[in-house]
Each structure stands twice: as C-alpha cells, then as structure tokens.
Design a protein around this nucleic acid. Structure first.
Lengths: 216, 216, 216, 216
DNA sequence: GATGAATGAGAGTTCATTCAT
DNA sequence: TATGAATGAACTCTCATTCAT
C-alpha cells in the first residue's frame, strides 16, 4: 500500500501525492480520526515534508476540499453541452455528477460528509461549490420554461428553492449510491432525473399541490 | 453555561441531563472532536459519573442516537392523523419532521451528520430509524395508489433511493430557509411537498421520463 | 458468583466474608490490580461498608496477610506431634504446610507472591510468619543431631542458613505445586523431604562438599 | 535523579536507556504500580518517545523480561567451564547466578517476582528462561551420573520440582545473607552448594528417604 | 447496620507539530 | 529537497475514597 518511495520529486508532484493520500484518509476516517502519520505514510513521504508543503492539518484539509470541489464542478461543466434542450442538459449534468462522485468516493465523502461536520471554516469552502451547482440548476429551470414558451409560473424564490432541493437530493443520493452495493451511478441519476423532472414538469404545467390553510 | 450544579439527583434524572449535554456537544463538534470532559461539565457532573452511568464514549453516543431517533420518529408519527387522505398525511408528516428537526438541531445533526461518519455500528443505529421513516412514506404511497385505484409499481430499491433524495432535499431546504431572509420553514416545507408530491404523482401515473439511450 | 446477599449480619461475620473475598481477589489479581469494587461485590456488600469495617485498601490487604499467615502457622503447628523423632516431625510439618497451601492457594499467593511485590510494609508482615517457620526447622535440625548423639558438626550460622534454604525451597515448591496441574501436595512434600533430609543427613555425617579455594 | 538529559541520541541507545529505567522501576514497584511517566522521566525522555519505541506498557515489560532473562542465562553459561567435573560446574553456575542476581537486583525482581504475578503472557516469558536453567542443571546431573557410572533415575517432573526448590532456596539464602551481618554471598552460595550437592548425591546413590505409609 | 450518589487524582495512550541536520 | 528524533497537550477511562441518608 502507499506510493512507492521515490526520492527527489518536483514539488508539484509531491503535493499531488500528498493530497491524494489525504483525500483518501480524510474521506474514509473523517477529519478528526485521520492522522497525519497515516497520511504521510500513504503518500510515501516523511511527516515534516507534509508540514513543509501544506503547513498544518487544517490547511491540508482545506486544500483537499478545494481540489475536490474544483474537480467536481469542472466534471459537471465538462459533461454538459449547452446546445441541447434543458432536460437533456440536466440529465447530462446529473450523469456527470454521479459519475464523478462514484469514481471519487473519498473525495465526495470529504465534500459531502466530512467537511460539514467540523466547523464553519470547512463548511464555507464547500458552500462555494454548492452555490455554483445551484446556479447551474436554476438556469436550467428558467431555460426549460423559455423553451416551452412559457413563464415558469413560479415566483423566482420558488425556483431557487426547487433548485436547492434538487441539489440536496443529488448530494444525498450520491452518498447513498456510493454506500449501497449494486447501485450504479447511472441508476442513481435516472432515479433522480425521473423524480425531479416529473416533479418540475408537473409544477410548470400549473398543477400545484395546495397546502391546507389551517394554522397550528 | 451548563446545567445548574444540583447535587444528589436520582440516577434516571442525571442520565437524561447527561444525554442532553452529550447530544448538544456531539451535535456541534462531532463524535471524535467531542470530549467527555466537555460533556460532563455541560451536564454539571464529574466525568467518572458519566462513565459509571453510560459506560464509554461509544455507548454514550449510541444512547444519544437511540434517544434522538426515537424522539424524531415519535414526533412524526404523532403529527400524522391516519384518517386523512395520503397527500395530507405526507404534508403533516413533513411538517412534523421539519418542526422537530428545527427544534432539535443538535439531535438532527447527531442523526444525520455525525452518526454517519464514524463506523458501521453507529450508522446501523440510524439505519433502523431511517427504515421506519421509509416504511411510513412507502405506506403513504401505497395508500395513495389504492385511493387512485392503481398499483404504485415502484421497486423497493427505488423507494429507498427516493427516500434518500427526499431527506437530502429536506435538509437542503431547511438550511436554505434558515439562511435566506423572508423564507419560513413552513414555506420551505410547502415547496418540498409540492416537489415531492408532484414527482411521486407523476411517477405513479406512469409518465416516466426516458433517459436517452446513448452511451458515453 | 459471590456470597448470597443477606442483610443485617453481625459485624464479625461480615468481616470474615469481606476477608474471604479480598483474599481471593488479591490472590488472583495482585494488590494493585485488585479493585475494591470487585471485592465488595464478591463479598456481597456495598463498598462503603468495606471501608467502614476495614478502613482502606492497605489495611484490608494487611488484614488479609495477617489472617492467612496466622492460619498457615497454626496449621503447621497443629500438624506436628512433638513426641516423634525429628525426621517424622519435619515430614509432618512439611505435609501440613503443603496441604494448607494447596487448600488455600489464594491465601498462599497473597503471602508468597503478592505481599512481597508491594513495598516494605507488607513484606514485613510476612517476615514474622517466615521467622516462625525458620525457627521451627532450626529446632528440628538441632534435635535431630541430639538424637543421633552427635553434634551437628556444623556451626550455628550454617544451621541457620540451611533452615533458611529449606523454608525458601518449601515456599517455592508450594507455589509451583499450586500452579502445576497434577502435582499433589503430598508429592511436593515428599520431593522436598527427600532432598532436604538426604542433604541434611549427608551433611551431618561429616561428608561436606568442599568449595574450591580459588578466588575470582 | 535519572539519566542526564542528552538530546538526539540514536534510537538503539535510547532504547537501552529506556529498558534500564523500566527494569529499575518495574523491579522496585511491580508491573501495575509502575507508571510510564516515572519510567520516561528516569530514562530522561518524554513519554511519547517511550511509546514510539516500545509500543505499550505490556510490550515494554515483555522487552524487560526478555533482556534480563537473556542476560542471566548468558551470565550463567559464561561462568561455567565445561571441561570441569559436574560438581565444579554446578558450583560455578551457582556462583555466576548469585553474582549476577546480586548485581542486578531489579532485573532479578522483574524475573522472579513481578513477571509471575501478572498474567500468563509474562509468566510464559520467564518459563522459557527457567526451562533453560533447568536443562543446564539436568545435564549436570546426567553428567555426574555418567561419571559415577550410574543412571540418575530421576523422572522429569521430579527434576522440575528440584529446580524450583533450588531457586527458592537460593533466593532465600541470598536475602538472608544480605540481611545477616557477617555472611557473604559467597558463603551463602557454599551453603547452598553443600545442601544441594549432598542432597543430589544421596538421591543418586539410591538412598531415598521413605515417607511413612500411614494416611491422615 | 447499610447504601446510592458522587468525585479528585491519575493511569495509559495518541497526536499534531517542531527541531536539527 | 528531505528526515530521524523528540515532545506538550489532550484524550478516554479507572480507582480509592467519601458524603448524605
């Protein structure tokens, strides 16, 4: 286990090795339970070198979050072809999302589980990525309405809420798919697409479920 | 800060105080970062007493999970009136769920975030609760289908996936509602209900969104 | 396990129950590893009562040592009939000694092993018992010589040394016999008697092994 | 008190310092009463370093046992010249044994007292050493018998019992010699040799002391 | 005569972090 | 560029001991 011990590598390479190791350990053990010893060993370097390059456990974790968040948003962006209709774009985005999280389960664990359980600082790092995904979905909903030559029929804030819900559902499903043997990324994407698009479609067609008026 | 230091309480009372403190600390710091010292102090007792009554950090955490899980499922069940139609039951269940988690944020943090990031044992405890909630939702779907004289036609795993999605969406919306001025938890619940019910309704009516056949 | 929980016993009886429990626990676990909790539980009383009657762990251990030491010397004394010849007296003494240590292995463990590994105070308690046994053996050797109408032919100090050796050998053998399955007390006594008496006999007949004169 | 605090020593050296300190503390206080803090301080290092090098208290104790056992058997073996007759070899072995244990009282305490009072694991470590010494003595007896053109005729278990007796006698004598003014360790050794050799000699000549047949 | 409730003090162990080279 | 040597601080857990009834 662990990288082969090769000496005198350029800094950039070494740093990536360390981040690889760190993401794996952090993703599997969590921030607190992860030990710098284990990370250094898995990276095939000595502990002082990790500190030399990445300063502290906190900085190392932050670097992991940033790298994984960037990679994830890039993957989603790369998976979408903007010339297609909105539902296809959403489908492709979801597929790219689930494919990436399935291929990088530790990275996703870092982003979705570990970073949210240890203080505001780390959570804020993830929030930026989240915001980007929400914006992407929101745009799609608006585009879909325009394609149907119709106003979405929903106030702007409701659209934002729906986008939040969708992203949250996707995040949860990704973790579930990774943890449940036999569930492929594609199946998870289909389940969500089905649910989300049907729900959105119904909503946009004007059939809104009305909450009862009583108060409690 | 902390409970008032009252001496010589009967065991049952002290245990609840300890669990209160533990849920708070575990919910905010996470399992690993929480220290028994801090929990004991917040509970207003000495550390040995915590160990005398609750055995170990692990057992204490398990006790927290169990108590909070029981409380949550009880709240949801209590919020639902079975004589109502299925959509109203789901609405009430969601409202009870949102209300309870909003009033017990630390408990919810324990169940949803902390217990899932530290070992199979804890995750299994939560899984039991989740299974109960999923059963509740599933029953509603079946009832709804019966009311519409139709078979729901959803395989078991699909239901589990939808439950994951729903919980993820709910969380997401709750956080968003808290963070966005002018959006109440009730409105967030309505948005989710809208989304979920429309989605489920469409699925049950057989109108399934078809993923394109191409491979990438 | 443990005594049946009977309430309101006279003090003397309760004390013996506590000592019984303490000897067992101390003998098996050692002084440090024994816990007052375990002792109290085995005695069938609450911990405060142990403290009320026996003051402290140290005092409790001392009481154990005293009781067991007294019982052992009494047993040896009771086993010997002074009207018999010296070799028979030694044999009977050894048999009584090995029989008692075999029947009270925990008591013997307390005296021979545990009391010697924790500070001068406890060791001193055992020393008194030891002195008594040494005196007994010494007297026998002198008597044996007188019976043979001969001066032992050994200086007084040599006799004292031999007695020390014999007692040490007996102590060691007793522990060994208790720890070795299949070795009876009688066999151990015979082995030692054989060895000791033959050795002593040879010595008294004047055939002394001469240490070489060289110095190193 | 304690070793002079020298920094940055090679690992092997530090390990020996730690073992030195550990043998001293374990020998004087016993396994349970010894604290890792005290050992570390006496060794002139911090506690974590002790754990880094020796893993745990248990491993540290085992390492002590092994080192001291090896040293003792080596000392005995080194003290014996095989070309001499058996009685001289035994004498030399005893002297080496006495000399070594007198010079390393803490080591001897670890081997003889402390290791036997705490669990099977430690006792087994000592048993190996003891077996080696017993083998040595046994060989001498066999050699002596061959020199006398006779079969020793002692069953294996009898030999083990005699070895126990011998060690117990030796200890006893050593302690007595230390406590009695005017008695040197060498004289004590001679007394023991006398006792042991005469006893063995008599036994081998077939003159066995017969225990009386009565039962009690 | 007897105990449920409670704790100060200290144990073994681990970890993020740094120094000296 | 890279590391073997080293530690302060904190953690979980246990224990002998006492108080209030």
């Amino acid at each position: 286990m662990g990288a082969v011990k090769t000496k005198r590598m350029p800094r950039a390479v070494r740093e990536q090795q360390m981040l690889d190791a760190a993401v794996r350990i952090f993703g599997q053990r969590g921030y607190m339970a992860a030990s710098m010893d284990e990370i250094a060993e898995l990276a095939g370097v000595s502990k002082p070198l990790v500190y030399l390059y990445l300063n502290s456990k906190e900085d190392l974790f932050t670097a992991c979050i940033r790298r994984e968040a960037t990679a994830l948003t890039a993957a989603v962006r790369a998976g979408v072809r903007q010339e297609l209709p909105a539902d296809r774009q959403l489908w492709e985005g979801l597929r790219a999302f689930f494919a990436h999280t399935a291929e990088h389960p530790d990275g996703w664990s870092v982003l979705h589980l570990q970073a949210r359980t240890h203080g505001e600082t780390f959570a804020a790092e993830v929030a930026a990525m989240r915001a980007e995904l929400v914006t992407f979905v929101t745009r799609l909903v608006v585009v879909a309405a325009r394609e149907a030559h119709r106003d979405p029929g929903l106030p702007e804030r409701e659209v934002a809420g729906l986008a939040e819900a969708l992203v949250g559902a996707a995040e949860s499903l990704a973790a579930w798919a990774n943890a449940t043997p036999g569930v492929t990324a594609r199946q998870a994407a289909a389940t969500l697409m089905n649910f989300a698009w049907s729900g959105l479609g119904t909503l946009m067609s004007g059939r809104v479920w009305a909450p009862p008026g009583e108060e409690t």
